[in-house]
């Protein structure tokens, strides 16, 4: 089964690793990451069929819809490779059980006691907490929330999950592509730390904005006019002018995908070599 899924994902051409590649450290808090690595390894080793929970905070259900777009592999993925143990829209269960992986969709409303409570409880009961989608990872468009609306005018402050609890992996995207979701789940099951490293690093990228292209790429003399940012923006907020990204901030939802997808933000050469055989 795993072989079929890997084939679907184009992950099978993975030559044996004989040398350990030093992974780039990006996020400042080292201990946090080391702990996460252990957690992922534990999930991979101890539980061949990880128990997965899906937690729906202030999100739109788009991320779990994207997961379900893995039509070809979804049924075997859900029935043979993982156990879905919790999740509104998926499982008829009200109390939060122990789980290996918690996929959290949506940001957290600081005025909503129930959300905060649920999140903290999930953190206690889950081995790995995954910020699933940009709302959970970066706040995304809920960054623009400012309250004043019926029926809860006081509900105004929405923050990424990592602001409130320790997060192990982030899968940004508005929504994340079906492929990256499937690849991540497979990598977790395999304990493929190499593949997951960028997701661990991205946990620290909570203040995302289209303006990062200007600040962190163009201003740093790194932009090379490839257009990858403009391609990846889900709202077409990015266009290219004289070879440089021009961000229409009125369209930007702060998902962070443009900067994450830019080849000059981080560069996973070892993985690309494995994937292409080059």
């Amino acid at each position: 089964m795993l072989a079929r899924i890997k084939r679907f994902l184009g992950m099978e051409a993975k030559p044996k690793e004989d040398e350990k590649v030093p992974v780039e450290k990006k996020v400042p808090t080292e201990e946090k990451k080391v702990a996460s690595e252990e957690e992922v390894e534990k999930v991979a080793e101890e539980k061949p069929k990880p128990r997965i929970g899906y937690i729906h905070l202030s999100g739109c259900t788009g991320d779990v819809m994207s997961l379900s777009e893995n039509y070809d592999i979804l049924a075997p993925l859900l029935t043979e490779m993982v156990d879905i143990v919790y999740g509104q829209t998926l499982v008829d269960r009200w109390d939060i059980p122990e789980m290996d992986i918690a996929l959290i969709e949506g940001s957290v409303c600081l005025q909503d006691e129930h959300s905060l409570h649920e999140l903290k409880e999930v953190r206690e009961k889950a081995g790995l907490v995954v910020a699933f989608g940009s709302c959970a990872a970066t706040g995304c468009f809920t960054r623009y929330s400012r309250g004043g609306q019926q029926a809860q005018p006081a509900h105004e402050s929405f923050v990424p999950v990592a602001d409130v609890v320790k997060v192990d992996l982030a899968i940004p995207g508005c929504p994340p592509s079906p492929e990256i979701i499937a690849k991540t789940v497979v990598a977790v099951i395999n304990g493929d730390m190499d593949y997951l490293q960028p997701m661990m690093d991205l946990v620290g990228y909570t203040e995302a904005c289209g303006c990062d292209l200007q600040l962190k790429v163009v201003n740093q003399a790194l932009c090379i006019a490839c257009g990858t940012c403009a391609m990846s923006c889900p709202t077409r907020a990015v266009s290219m002018t004289a070879g440089r990204p021009e961000v229409n901030s009125d369209r930007c939802v702060k998902c962070g995908v443009c900067y994450i997808q830019c080849p000059r933000s981080w560069w996973p050469m070892e993985r690309i070599k494995k994937d292409t055989g080059l």
């Binding site: 184009g10 994207s66 777009e69 899968i171 940004p172 995207g173 508005c174 929504p175 994340p176 592509s177 079906p178 492929e179 990256i180 960028p198 391609m231 990846s232 923006c233 889900p234 998902c255 995908v257 994450i260 997808q261 996973p268 993985r271 690309i272 994937d275």
Partner: peptide, 8 residues
């Protein structure tokens, strides 16, 4: 292709 975060 290796990390299609947002590119469906």
């Amino acid at each position: 292709q290796s990390y299609p975060f947002g590119v469906r």
